[in-house]
């Protein structure tokens, strides 16, 4: 494993995942000892290829694992000093962690406003505060304001914005974002990521961002973890990761010289980190 980078020590760690193992259906071992720390008020990204276990890690944190017959069998997850592993998802939402699931998952047969009001389901501070926050979300995403029909008819980008807006409505302390760039055009990805960054800066919400689009993710994140087949293989501050040769080659691309078939064998071998 690569040298662990020096983490920003002064920061308060809001979420700490310690050496967790996740098993699906009692037999399929998906995560094999994942540990990560998320400092309060920052954007941390979790990168890695398909099937590495990124989404599973998020679901282990948000408790949604239970809905898919998964379970944290070892290790612990602490949020603001309290153990939350294997708790019911509604309890974890109440504690302040809100997951925006992969593929947006907005409620298609409801209107934009109804979706937003559902985001505030766990809040108890009254209709006026919720109406205020709906306005706030519309200020972040002006194009949602004009959409009056069912959310299912929104474009992919608008649905992603709605999904993020719905998370904001819960006024969470931490948002888990699962691949917000999925299926969006490069321009929209830029727009969505700019808003994520602004959201973190304005409201101080902590963000754990799972992405395949490493280049974009490392633009807004301060710290990153890289996962492969159920393990964290590399972690570091943004600049360390961006300058790391392996990360450059596997995740960032942009290498000007073309790879030839001659090198394919060694490339494949090097693709394994451990």
């Amino acid at each position: 494993m690569a040298e662990p980078a020096v983490k920003p020590a002064a920061d308060e760690i809001i979420l700490s995942v310690n050496n967790i193992e996740v098993v699906y259906d009692d037999v399929i071992l998906v995560l094999r000892g994942v540990s990560l720390d998320v400092p309060k008020g920052r954007i941390v990204t979790l990168l890695g290829p398909n099937g590495a276990g990124k989404s599973t890690t998020l679901k282990a944190i948000s408790g949604l694992l239970g809905t898919e017959d998964g379970e944290v069998t070892r290790g612990n997850i602490t949020f603001m000093g309290e153990e939350i592993a294997n708790r019911a998802p509604e309890e974890i939402v109440r504690r302040g962690i809100f997951q925006v699931m992969e593929g947006r998952r907005i409620i298609e047969d409801m209107t934009v406003t109804e979706n937003l009001r559902l985001g505030a389901f766990t809040r108890k501070d009254g209709a006026a505060a919720i109406r205020n926050d709906i306005e706030m979300v519309f200020d972040y995403f002006p194009r949602l304001r004009e959409r009056v029909g069912l959310a299912g008819y929104l474009s992919g980008g608008e649905q992603q914005m709605l999904a993020i807006g719905r998370a904001m409505m819960a006024r969470p302390k931490m948002i888990l974002l699962d691949e917000p760039s999925m299926g969006l055009s490069p321009l929209l990805v830029k727009e969505v990521f700019a808003i994520i960054e602004k959201l973190c800066r304005d409201t101080g919400v902590t963000i754990l961002l799972v992405e395949q689009n490493a280049r974009m993710a490392l633009k807004i994140a301060e710290f990153g973890y890289i996962m492969e087949s159920g393990k964290i293989v590399l972690d570091g501050a943004k600049d360390d990761l961006v300058n790391n040769e392996d990360v450059k080659e596997f995740y960032l691309g942009g290498d000007k010289e073309r790879k030839s078939f001659k090198n394919l064998k060694s490339y494949k071998r090097r693709k394994r980190w451990l």
Binding site: L64, M101, R117
Partner: peptide
């Protein structure tokens, strides 16, 4: 109503409903 919306969300997709904090 808040509960009515929650029921519709549950009808749409239970996992999504749970991710919103609905029991």
């Amino acid at each position: 109503s808040r509960m009515g919306l929650a029921m519709r969300a549950t009808a749409f997709n239970q996992q999504v409903a749970q991710s919103l904090g609905i029991s």
